[in-house]
Design a protein around this nucleic acid. Structure first.
Length: 890
RNA sequence: GGGGGCGUGGCGGAAUGGCAGACGCAAGGGAUUUAAAAUCCCUUGACCGACAGGUCGUGCGGGUUCGAGUCCCGCCGCCCCCACCA
């Protein structure tokens, strides 16, 4: 038999050309039901990484599956092309950002085509093109008219390395910049904001709609980020000056226990009181010191509570008590009112502060044991009896009494119910060049003047000098900055800040339905046809950034009457991280695998083969650090000789454990890479990359190929009917085939379980390999077609090649998903386990339709069972026909 | 401190409350080969046993059930997110 090697390189190119030529993924009007599948579009960094490969492969499998299921599928791709890397490259190399961006797009588009991902490229756009970003400006004006965008002075996050402010959401763990990882500092600045916080309640309420179709983790993160808390606002008064001082509290039940008041260092009242203070300088000094302390989570956790007494007092409205007013480093200006009523007996933070500064404790909630605050070693925060609290003294359950207390406060005019959110407004301005210019003009006479709609777009100028450390280059572009005031015509100046690039990604999913429209942002008819997105796929790192902004933006667009839905993504799927073992040297930090040397405990070298085996075991986790040591090996750094440790971690440049998708496709082809990414684990879990793993996927493809090729001479021509009177082997083969159809379909429909779908195909493949010689030609064809179709969304080039070898002219993706024949899948004989007291003791081979009574009879008659039940009392027999028999004996 | 997720062989992982370990990787043995690669066949949870077979086994402790990896309660461990949020 002539062996034909699977030539992936020729085959993949051939089918990519055909799909493009035949417009397989071009979408227009159709009678079929619509399905909009979207993957998070990439920033054009220039190269795809493995995270992209997993993301886009998942999306592509769904697109092809839905095509086979008869849908009219929209699968677009574009570029999130504004942002810092292009601008930084310009500073470094002198290449203009647009040029850098275009080059990167060309490279990545070629990589995407090579991976075989099917997109409607006629819809492609890049957000840095004026045809796109002009609509950012148009939306800005619409938001402005509606009062959804404001300019305000506020404490903001400043990244010194990126030379720009950042939104709250873009400061990640430990107070680092989301882009560059540098420490972020707080500054007071006058900036543009979208009023995200106005939508806190709507964003939260929307979760009801999304629950079940978005990952729980994402909803939980958003909920946490929105941070709703219900409580009361109570107005205290500064005794000496009469200034009103409202506070927010979730614990109005402890109002009678307030023994001091804390102001955030940035609180406006601090400056005012300092001016009236006897020792202004000392107070301001202390406050300044507090403000310059770090704000990262780590800093905060390690930092001691610190404060300074202002010399002033406040009056507690519920009982007239006069308590000292402090400035404290734990009070945050950005939450509540910036002032905290402090109850040391019933709040751990206040407890610590009061201990340090010797402030009194007043017990107002009594624990069950009746103990006193003197005997506590920490604040009492659990449920208890209200004591020492005016009209509420004696209430048995403090938490249950809260609504009543709030009601009373309201009646007395002392306070009212208040819902507070942690969510802050979305800081929009960026002091950088490569973004959408904010369409605003500043006029000395007219103030802030929005650019009139008819003067849009405000085009980002290209005559720009990029100089490192000189701030936003737009400031130096006289032709850009100098402009006439649209209202009075006098000389005025343009806003030089640009928009956060997350504005671009907040509505790109809508633009894809009408990407070339130059008269409107979109045609409402096309939007109605496609949106909201049926299935969105991307990384979970966007849970509180992009995904939150896009939801907000959609809600505002809805309220502006521009769309008639208010959630952008009906279903969301988040893929897991792609990980690989990484090596860390004590001295040089992360090092790449080739820089690691394995030696024996005595320092002697290993030969090449031993080394290879050892590293393979480390890579596939069959050897951990302990095992390595106990086997008498250790790893050393080839650069400095220091010991080396290893761990499984996300593939990244900085950890030096990257896998280059191009190199993998050179070696194994796109289909093998795709198959491997999906075959091992469920796609929402961590994926581990190993050489052995990709090699296994390569073997699977070749096994399949040989099976199909070796069968070609035997398969009947398409359409040959399957005879009615098949022998047992052929009936078995048909049964397995149709059981596989059902299982594969369920695996895909039941939530992206491609690992089990692939396993089912493998099972069928293994079965067919054993029985191919006995297979009837028509049955053989049926089975082969099921395998090829089922696997084709995952390895599409392979699928189409096999499909054409099976004699079809058209692409497999224009055919239809295999049809499940329940009759053929039915078992005619079953092996039913018989348990005694829950343990399997025997098995019965019976016709599939044997009823319960018959099963019970057969089970009790079974020799093995009788031996075990002899002399005992059968108490109960549970029979589940077709499943099992359980006999309870004593 | 709060929230989310997870815990099954040497590894990734399968199991509508009903035969635990599908499928794959790694490992061992064999066939083929001058040799290697590739391919094909067999074995592979642990323990006892020559075999037949038996015993134990899904992080730990309880519970519900004829029957629990799966459901309930209480622990332990790991991962992720948030965190001086009043």
């Amino acid at each position: 038999m002539a062996e034909e090697e699977y030539n992936f390189s020729l085959i993949e190119k051939k089918w990519q050309k055909r799909w493009e030529k035949e417009g397989l993924f071009k979408t227009g009007k159709s009678d079929r039901p619509n399905y909009y599948a979207l993957n998070m579009y990439p920033y054009p960094s220039g190269v795809l990484h493995m995270g992209h490969v997993l993301n886009y492969t998942l999306g592509d499998v769904m697109v092809r599956y839905k095509l086979l299921r008869g849908y009219n599928v929209l699968s677009p791709m574009g570029w999130d092309s504004f942002g810092l890397p292009a601008e930084n490259a310009a500073i470094r190399t002198g290449v203009a950002p647009h040029e850098f961006t275009e080059n990167n797009i060309d490279r990545m588009r070629a990589q995407m085509k090579r991976a075989g991902w099917g997109y409607d490229w006629s819809r492609e756009f890049a957000t840095s093109h004026v045809d796109y970003y002009r609509w950012n400006q148009w939306f800005f004006l619409k938001f402005y008219e509606k009062g959804m965008v404001v300019k305000k002075n506020a404490p903001v996050n400043w990244c010194d390395s990126c030379q720009t402010v950042l939104a709250n959401e873009q400061v990640i763990r430990e107070g680092e910049c989301e882009r560059c990882g540098s420490k972020v500092v707080q500054k007071d600045m006058n900036q543009w904001f979208y009023k995200l916080s106005d939508y806190a309640q709507r964003l939260l309420a929307g979760h009801d709609k999304l629950r079940g179709s978005w990952p729980d983790a994402v909803l939980a993160m958003q909920e946490e980020w929105i941070g709703k808390s219900v409580g009361a606002e109570v107005v205290f008064t500064v005794k000496e000056t009469g200034d009103r001082l409202p506070v927010f509290t979730t614990r109005p039940d402890t109002l009678w226990g307030v023994t001091f008041m804390s102001l955030a260092p940035e609180h406006p009242l601090v400056k005012k009181l300092a001016a009236e203070s006897e020792d202004e300088a000392a107070l301001l000094d202390a406050v300044t010191r507090m403000r310059t302390m770090g704000t990262s989570a780590k800093d905060l956790a390690e930092r001691e509570k610190e404060g300074v007494f202002t010399g002033f007092h406040v009056v507690n409205p519920v009982n007239g008590a006069e308590v000292p007013l402090w400035v404290a480093n734990f009070a945050l200006m950005t939450y509540g009112t910036g002032a905290v009523m402090s109850v040391p007996a019933h709040d751990q933070r206040d407890w610590e502060f009061a201990k340090k500064y010797d402030i009194p404790f007043v017990k107002v909630i009594e624990p069950e044991d009746g103990s006193d605050v003197k005997n506590w070693d920490r604040a009492f925060v659990a449920q208890g009896k209200i004591v020492n609290s005016g009209p509420f003294t004696g209430k048995p359950d403090n938490f249950a009494a809260i609504p009543e207390i709030v009601e009373w406060l309201n009646g007395q005019g002392l306070g009212e119910k208040r819902v507070n959110y942690r969510l802050r407004d979305w800081l929009l301005s960026r002091q950088r060049y490569w973004g959408t210019p904010i369409p605003i003009i500043y006029c000395d006479d007219c103030g802030i003047v929005p650019v009139p709609e008819k003067s849009l777009p405000v085009i980002l100028p290209t005559d720009i000098d990029f100089i490192h450390g000189q701030g936003n280059p737009l400031l130096r572009s006289k032709t850009f900055v100098n402009v006439k005031c649209p209202t009075c015509g006098k000389p005025a100046r343009r806003e030089t800040d640009t928009m956060d690039t997350f504005v671009d990604s907040s509505w790109y999913q809508i633009r894809f339905v009408d990407p070339k429209n130059d008269r409107a942002c979109w045609d409402p008819e096309k939007v109605r046809q496609w949106l909201p997105v049926n299935q969105y796929i991307g990384g979970i790192e966007h849970a509180t950034m992009h995904l939150m902004y896009a939801r907000f933006f959609t809600m505002v667009l809805h309220d502006l009457g521009l769309v008639d839905f208010d959630e952008p993504f009906t279903r969301l799927f988040c893929q897991g991280m792609v990980c690989k073992v990484a090596f860390r040297c004590n001295d040089c930090k992360w090092i790449s695998a080739p820089q690691v040397k394995a030696v024996r405990a005595d320092g002697s070298d290993l030969d090449e083969e031993e080394t290879e085996i050892l590293f393979k075991r480390i890579e596939n986790q069959s050897l951990d650090e302990e095992g390595l040591e106990s086997e008498g090996y250790r790893l050393v750094c080839m650069v400095c000789g220091e010991p080396v440790h290893f761990e499984m971690t996300k593939i990244s440049k900085s950890k030096l454990n990257i896998v280059d998708p191009d190199a993998m496709m050179d070696r194994y082809g796109a289909d093998t890479v795709r198959l491997y990414m999906l075959s091992d684990s469920p796609p929402d879990r961590m994926q581990i990359w190993t050489e052995d793993g990709i090699n296994g996927a390569w073997r699977t493809i070749n096994r399949l190929w040989r099976l199909v090729m070796d069968s070609l001479s035997k398969v009947a021509s398409a359409g040959t009917p399957i005879p009615a009177d098949l022998d047992k082997t052929n009936r078995d083969l048909r049964r397995k085939t149709h059981q596989a159809v059902k299982k594969v379909t369920d695996s895909i429909e039941g939530g992206y379980q491609f690992n089990t779908a692939i396993a089912r195909c493998n099972e069928l493949l293994n079965f067919l390999r054993q029985h191919r010689d006995a297979a009837h030609p028509a049955v053989l064809r049926e089975t082969l077609e099921v395998i090829v179709k089922s696997i084709s969304p995952i390895i599409p080039h392979f699928g189409d090649e096999c499909w054409s070898r099976l004699g079809y002219e058209e692409s497999v993706f224009t055919s239809s998903w295999p049809e499940y024949d329940a009759e053929a899948a039915k078992e005619d004989e079953l092996v039913v386990p018989v348990q005694v007291n829950g343990k399997v003791r025997s098995r019965l081979s019976v016709p599939a339709d044997t009823d319960a009574a018959e099963l019970e009879r057969l089970a009790l008659e079974d020799a093995k069972i009788r031996a075990l039940t002899e002399g005992k009392t059968v108490q109960r027999v549970v029979v589940v026909p077709g499943r099992m028999v359980n006999i309870a004996v004593k």
